[in-house]
Design a protein around this nucleic acid. Structure first.
Lengths: 217, 217
DNA sequence: CCATCCTTAGCACGAAGGAGTGACGCACCC
DNA sequence: GGGTGCGTCACTCCTTCGTGCTAAGGATGG
């Protein structure tokens, strides 16, 4: 039985293909909230507004191309599953897409049952320990080494970590400085290095990245 | 065999008890980074700087008292396991502490082996699916309904959710406005209500709370 | 119909945040 | 010895954020 998949974006340069696939997707019972995008920027806007669970991505997308699009999509929506729309012979684009995290491919002629089959395969629920027994109520320290991964490891210094923790608790730079017996300017310096390391533009994104990567909890 | 527990804070009003317990904790092989606190504010400072895995908390803490302290600690460090230090007869304080998330109690005379036993019990690793098989590499949509919990559910409106997602991606209010075809001022309004609902002081904390509660990923 | 909520939007204001730069001490390592 | 990275602090400059207030339209539901 199919797992519910909420949030699908069909991204294809050709309106006819796009609409046909969207209709096919809407016909899948376990799918909900199907949207369409005609180019990369539209897809990214969708992703920023409401990260989709599944994206069907045109292998011959106009503009930046599917590879760059995939890369940008990854930055915005890490957990989104991407399936590339390509013809059988299109090995090159496909390989590069896979290395960037695409989870498979479909031909643009895919039917509803094709989509359902792919989704059932990809979204097959991994076995998860039941949280019913009291023991599992435990917060569980370090259950898995690192749920994230993918990119290279980021190592924070002690100070950077402490500053990041403070940020995640809604403390101002000044307050963090008081917590650590440091001046606010010093916190700003650490914050700046922290942002560079994490690739964050501000503290909100830094916290998001930090939690997603398991640097803080 | 004991799971490694890194970050222990012994918080007790009496220096002698505190030090003795800290020494006992340091003697446990699987424990590392043992710190002490003489009152609530010291404990909270420790927690803000580096969230501990385990806190031994005096049931008769001076000042705000252990209940209020526990409540504040919960806000700063959600995953920290708290064990209350109380005498056998102290049912009242104990009950209230348990409702606030304390995981058990010890007498102030606890020895190293007591601590080790408690830790082994509490930090017993829950069964976790091995991430070695390729299937488990799946991002896994909605594997568990909500890993967090505890407090009451927070319901965000569509707009609030979208704004929160934007924040977590490091977008400015102005940029979020462009993503949603809204004015920056409108984003501010949504942000304000978002902060209220989440109990956040700024966007960084809002993102932290949002992710921890599973509102966003 | 009225109450309530969501949504949108504006304005003003002080408080933070973030970029950039420079500087000094310290530890480590080649 | 010199390079590198970390930690600390200061200073400027500009941008952004967060808050308070007000207001109005639409949807919903009793």
């Amino acid at each position: 039985m199919g797992v519910g998949v909420s949030g699908i974006v069909v991204c294809h340069g050709v309106a006819a293909v796009r609409e046909r696939l969207a209709a096919a997707a809407s016909a899948v019972p376990s799918f909900s909230s199907v949207r369409t995008a005609g180019d990369a920027s539209e897809l990214l806007r969708h992703a920023r507004v409401a990260p989709p669970a599944l994206v069907l991505l045109d292998a011959h997308l106009p503009g930046p191309g599917p590879i760059e699009t995939l890369r940008q999509l990854r930055q915005v929506s890490q957990r989104t599953v991407v399936v590339v729309l390509a013809e059988k012979g299109d090995e090159v684009a496909l390989d590069r897409a896979i290395t960037l995290g695409a989870r498979g491919y479909l031909t643009p002629e895919a039917t509803s049952s094709d989509l359902a089959a792919v989704a059932a395969h990809i979204f097959a629920a991994p076995v998860v320990p039941s949280p019913t027994v009291p023991v599992a109520h435990s917060p569980g320290l370090r259950t898995a080494p690192s749920p994230a991964g993918g990119d290279r490891e980021i190592e924070l210094t002690k100070r950077e970590y402490e500053v990041l923790v403070g940020m995640s608790n809604g403390r101002s730079n000044n307050q963090i400085g008081q917590d650590l017996f440091l001046s606010e300017d010093t916190i700003k310096t650490h914050a700046q290095r922290l942002f560079r390391k994490l690739g964050a533009r501000d503290r909100a994104q830094a916290v998001a990245i930090g939690i997603r990567r398991g640097l803080i909890s």
